[in-house]
Design a protein around this nucleic acid. Structure first.
Lengths: 151, 151
DNA sequence: AATCAATAGTTACGATTGCAACTAATATGC
DNA sequence: GCATATTAGTTGCAATCGTAACTATTGATT
């Protein structure tokens, strides 16, 4: 006899639920403190974490966000004066995006929140299970790099 | 000196990216074949998997979907005649939702797709890493049950 | 039993999203 | 060197989403 389908064991379902839970609790923090949207936080994080300037496409690839999402997030951060654009001298289609000092300051504050949250998660999950999760996620990331994009 | 924040190691970020990757590849299948939305698939799966009738609130709790999402998904499935509502005799606020034979048929077809996809994931990740991921997700699920809902 | 609180589910509406079409710039082929 | 294809990024628009307000029903309080 064939094994019955178990939704509770279905990986997309489990991953999605876990991701939503973990993300929501953190989003509540930066939304409350900075009125940042999620795409804005992800853009800020990509730029701040890289420590260099990036193009919008790079940000999108790195954080797997749609280019229109990135475009709007960049606009939002630009209005806050957290980010400045600089045209590429050789190829003017490119815009090099970099954090302003104010943006870097916000990034540092947010990474403090993020680090504290990561610690909180570690204590919630325990070191052993956290390691297991990390190992599993690494495998997914490996698969992502190998796989051909869907759209 | 303090450890620098590493976005690539930040759990919400990693989980979200992995979940999106895994979900998107499956969504492409049921969208192409049935024009099902994600909330509709999740509702169908919750009902089919439980094997019994459920209320909208139960579906929402179980799949962590907002009640308006559930409400619209139920409406969609009802229009396809995949689901029927039955009022509770004692408390008429409740609606007991159950799959029709057509709905059960669709559910079985979709679970075949899902099972095949799960197998594909297993072969992509490898058994060891899949086990690790599963163990890590179980820990998150445990934390979810303990934690107080944010909204 | 009359009022008030709580719960299940729906809906109106503003915000967010992604697709497709667009502009602008550069690369390629002939 | 000119037409065509390609790429970076933006925007219009329709679909989707979540919040808050709503209806309907039941429970609790007095």
């Amino acid at each position: 006899m064939t094994e019955a389908f178990e939704l509770e064991a279905f990986l997309p379902y489990r991953l999605n639920r876990a991701a939503e839970f973990v993300a929501l609790r953190f989003a509540a923090q930066y939304k409350a403190r900075y009125q940042l949207t999620r795409p804005e936080w992800r853009t800020l994080a990509a730029l701040g974490s890289s420590g260099r300037s990036m193009t919008a496409t790079e940000i999108g690839t790195h954080s797997t966000m749609h280019k229109t999402k990135v475009s709007r997030a960049v606009f939002g951060l630009e209005q806050r004066r957290w980010l400045k654009r600089e045209a590429d001298g050789r190829d003017r289609r490119f815009e090099h995006l970099a954090l302003t000092p104010a943006g870097q300051h916000a990034y540092r504050e947010l990474t403090e929140l993020a680090t504290a949250y990561q610690d909180e998660l570690l204590s919630m999950l325990g070191e052993v299970d956290m390691k297991a999760l990390s190992k599993g996620l690494s495998a997914v990331e490996r698969a992502m790099r190998k796989s051909v994009p869907i759209p």
